[in-house]
């Protein structure tokens, strides 16, 4: 079954980065999470069809060979590949652990945007000093 290839495929897409602190797909059980999202949207079949287009020996290829096979698949079926990316990135970037890494690496809070929201200083009218010197320039018309 082509879906058996999903764990390997996801690790090639999202291999993690030890230096920067990003987990790989298998570190966070991404195959299960991605399949759950796909099942909710009746997209499991689409993923299966896409992965069936990979070469028969995909699982036994070296890492570089697997990457090359995925690049070829992306070129041959960009729309199908975009669906795979949607579920791969969708599951990865909604994972609680990954959101904590996002926070650690970028400062963007892992919590949802509500109910707390974020703070921004009020609009500073002094920024308008230059543009306020302009005379009205909208086009006048009758009526």
């Amino acid at each position: 079954m082509s879906l058996d290839l999903l764990p390997t495929v996801l690790d090639r897409l999202l291999p993690g980065d030890d230096e920067l602190g990003w987990p790989s797909a298998s570190d966070i059980e991404l195959p299960r999470k991605a399949l759950k999202l796909a099942a909710e949207r009746d997209a499991t079949g689409a993923l299966e069809t896409l992965l069936a287009k990979l070469p028969g020996d995909f699982a036994t290829l070296e890492e570089a060979g697997q990457v090359a096979a995925l690049e070829a698949l992306e070129g041959a079926d960009p729309d199908g590949f975009a669906t795979l990316i949607l579920y791969a990135y969708g599951a990865y970037y909604t994972d609680a652990g990954v959101r904590c890494v996002v926070e650690a690496r970028t400062g963007y809070p892992a919590r949802p945007p509500q109910p707390k929201g974020y703070a921004l200083p009020p609009f500073d009218e002094s920024l308008l000093a230059t543009v306020r010197q302009r005379a009205p320039f909208w086009r006048k018309v009758e009526g």
């Binding site: 897409l13 999202l14 291999p15 980065d17 920067l20 990316i85 990135y89 990865y92 970037y93 963007y108």
Partner: peptide, 20 residues
């Protein structure tokens, strides 16, 4: 983060070793 990774207003973040 997800909107950015999927391309958002710019381009999709490439998959693979350069992704992160």
């Amino acid at each position: 983060p997800l909107g950015t990774a999927l391309g958002g207003y710019a381009r999709r973040i490439p998959w693979g070793s350069r992704h992160h």
